[in-house]
Design a protein around this nucleic acid. Sequence first.
DNA 1: CCAAAAGTGTTTAAATTACACCCATGG
DNA 2: CCATGGGTGTAATTTAAACACTTTTGG
Lengths: 235, 235
Amino acid sequence: MSESKRPDNLNQYFQAAVSVDNVVFGFDNEVLKILLIYRGAEPYKNYWALPGDLINLESDLDNSAVNVLQSLTGLDDIFMEQIRTFGRVDRHPFGRVYTVAYYSLIKSEDYKVSAQSWAEEADWFPISKLPELPFDHNEIVEFAKQQLKMRIRVQPVGFELLPKYFTLSELQKLYEAILETEFDVRNFRKKILSTGFILDTGLKQTGVTHRPAKLYKYNAKRDYSIISSGMNFDL
Amino acid sequence: MSESKRPDNLNQYFQAAVSVDNVVFGFDNEVLKILLIYRGAEPYKNYWALPGDLINLESDLDNSAVNVLQSLTGLDDIFMEQIRTFGRVDRHPFGRVYTVAYYSLIKSEDYKVSAQSWAEEADWFPISKLPELPFDHNEIVEFAKQQLKMRIRVQPVGFELLPKYFTLSELQKLYEAILETEFDVRNFRKKILSTGFILDTGLKQTGVTHRPAKLYKYNAKRDYSIISSGMNFDL
DNA sequence: CCAAAAGTGTTTAAATTACACCCATGG
DNA sequence: CCATGGGTGTAATTTAAACACTTTTGG
């Protein structure tokens, strides 16, 4: 059935465009950042915006997201998770464009971002100091932050934002940055260690001007697939 | 900026269609059900499927979802929440159609569903006995179930599925149906009452052949907006 | 020896679990 | 008086929260 011809009366519906917008989170040991590009094409030329673009008809949606990010920022093969689709009628000045928002987490230090295609620049912005963004991009970022907060509370997210080996204080800073709270050092360590998310590598920091911290790594072997049953209402 | 002309080279992107598919959950005191329609139009004519349709270019996405449901099932003014967008290249035989999935919860007894437009029938199916659905609808339903499970664990969802006044056992059966678990009666009552989600109406069941249960109602006055901070990893 | 961040334990309170019997009604 | 589902309390365990001082390194 994959080759049937479309009845003519349906043609009117095939006039929309779909774009993808990516919220790429990075972390630099202090603050959460997101990646923006400086648009070198209309609309909103010469504005900083989320790396996003119209997508062609030939790729699966999830692949398009990866491709768009690649083509604008050089970031290759990044795992991206869909957030939701934004479809206000007037959100794009060139016509009816639905945009599917994605987010991803990367260790900023592991990747070199480089503006490409019609992106004139690409750079990290602290999440607390974002410029006014065009389209509904500010709304998208807000939504992505919410989503990330939810996610991190129930899954071992976040290690993607740290170097392969990291200290517990780095991890704690990351959690605090994402959740916008502060944790007690001892309780944080107790809790995070009890989950089995991370493993002691036996290594230590070197060259620091204070007591060197132990280095941990993400425990990829643990099985994270079991979603807890039971109910809990944390309002 | 809302009237700029689109450069010709972008026209190629404006050839996609977007559809909406709704997963409408209902509950009949025993099992969770979802609403399907019997398709009277191609493609997949004469299949049971999610109530969904291509959407026009003139409405905001969220409104389109409501409208589509209305026009196929007569269900009016139902609050729907977006799940995610499905965009495999070959998911629709008539061309490139991205579908945005929504879900909603309704008290089946409060509404009369009636097939309309090209829907020839509309009926409730227990979620455990769904037929094979066309397109990627089975995948969408699966995703919606997951989403609902997540949601109910952190928000006072579910009252939408019960009559205005309900008993605690009805509520418990609902939670058990959604979460696919069983709860201890006493612990369930303790927990649910302690949340302040529900209020004792002072009323009782009548005409039942056993001790009549107290009737409760949803506490709309409580403030459900504060999302808990802190971390919790319930894997 | 000073500065800077790492590391560590205990007590208290709160939440969760497990568990069994009596109650009110209609037939 | 029987069947049916409604309703209730407590003890034990687990989890979360609060809180302050010592350790290791480089300069």
